[in-house]
Write a protein that binds this DNA or RNA. Structure first.
Lengths: 229, 229
DNA sequence: CCCCTCCTGACAGTTTCCGGCAGTTGAATG
DNA sequence: CATTCAACTGCCGGAAACTGTCAGGAGGGG
């Protein structure tokens, strides 16, 4: 049972150990499988996130190990994690809060002592004042925009309550002044702007993509912000 | 493809996140699989080295999972980490902020793309309003008290500004209502109390140890807090 | 042109997986 | 003592996934 999964791990291990360019034939022999299946296995690993470079007439090379070294954190770092994640659990939208809980659980699993584990987990549950996140809004629209580098159109109420309709290129979602805000390029004003998530009345995904400009746009915005301060 | 393996990981994660005794039915629903299959999956995990305690008429409990391959963070989880840690960098005392930065660097190192790494790191630097942490106070005294389970004596100003001198048994440092507070047993009042760090005028380490009562004390305090809400 | 090697598609045989059902067991509860 | 709960087990048949074999492509080096 689980023969296949086990074999994939062995394959990965073989690629780590064997000297750099390894032929598929060699790996097939190593894992005891036909050539055809080996190609399928390589596919599976790539699909699972491993970066495997394959060149014709040359062989395979493992560029990047996604099974990273077991993350170990010292006590102070654990403390920082617990605090930060507890905060996100309260503040964030449901999806974000769940992710924070999930990280917490993963990190707790690496803790040596069982009682420490439990406390670590417990502390993050202590304080739960009313959720501060703008409940009506579906953050996933914004988050998808950031990740997929697609525009989003908003109905947004500014400080005076004036409502405007605009299209933005969302760059990142961050805390600022204790609130969740979206850093974005505003197509209406043709400038970088921050949008408080609690003032966004509605968000709709648009089809237009701005890939691959997100990284450079965000960089410019950050330098602009830094210059202003 | 690989659906099964993926499901097993999800099952494990579910057991870590959900509160302790979980019924098979619940886990089956969580992983979207029939009850029969769930029992098979539990078997697989046990065979793979996870220690899962199952009691009839009660539920499952995960006692240990060290034998299993290390878990990586997905995109959403990375996002949660970045947000939480950025917050701690601003809020925390220097030692804590440094720890947060250090975790950030460790996690960033595992990110696949170089530009993603850079952005991830950059975002956490964006916003730096004035540090909100009570600058005069040396948090390490309190933190050491928590870790080494030794008493600490405080000069503390309450809500009306009345200053009192008291000895506490510090249990944990957490956020509450957006401020850093110390959860502790107050020897003066003989009760559990929360102390806002920004109202602590002075903290001195005492020699008296309360080891190993910290875990149980904190547990009682937490249940008391939860009962009150 | 030939050889190396990665890579893809199709097909058939085999294996594994999955849900459902029926039933057992241990413990707590009433 | 009966009942409920919920972990477990065995077995079946259909569905799905995996595997090896065969038959090609495709890019680069000699």
């Amino acid at each position: 049972m689980m023969a296949r999964t086990d074999r994939l791990f062995r394959l990965l291990q073989a690629m780590r150990v064997l000297p750099a360019p390894v032929t598929a034939a060699r790996l097939a022999e190593e894992t005891g499988v036909s050539l055809r299946s080996l190609y399928r296995d390589i596919d599976s690993l790539r699909a699972a996130g491993a970066r495997i470079e394959g060149e014709r007439g040359y062989g395979y090379r493992l560029t990047e190990d996604h099974a990273l070294p077991p993350q170990t954190f010292d006590r102070m770092e654990i403390e920082a994690l617990a605090l930060g994640l507890a905060e996100v659990r309260h503040m964030g939208d449901p999806a974000l809060a769940e992710a924070a809980a999930s990280v917490l659980a993963k990190v707790a699993a690496t803790l040596p002592d069982a009682s420490e584990q439990h406390l670590f987990h417990a502390v993050s549950h202590v304080y739960r004042p009313e959720a501060r996140y703008p409940s009506g809004l579906d953050m996933s629209t914004l988050r998808n925009g950031c990740w997929r580098e697609t525009a989003v159109s908003l109905r947004y109420a500014d400080g005076e309550g004036t409502v405007t309709e605009r299209t933005i290129l969302p760059l990142a979602i961050v805390y600022a002044d204790r609130r969740l805000v979206v850093l974005a390029w505003c197509c209406l004003r043709e400038a970088f702007r921050m949008f408080r998530t609690d003032r966004i009345l509605e968000a709709r995904a648009e089809a237009t993509s701005f890939r691959p400009r997100r990284a450079s746009l965000l960089r410019s915005y950050l330098t602009e912000l830094r210059a202003r301060a």
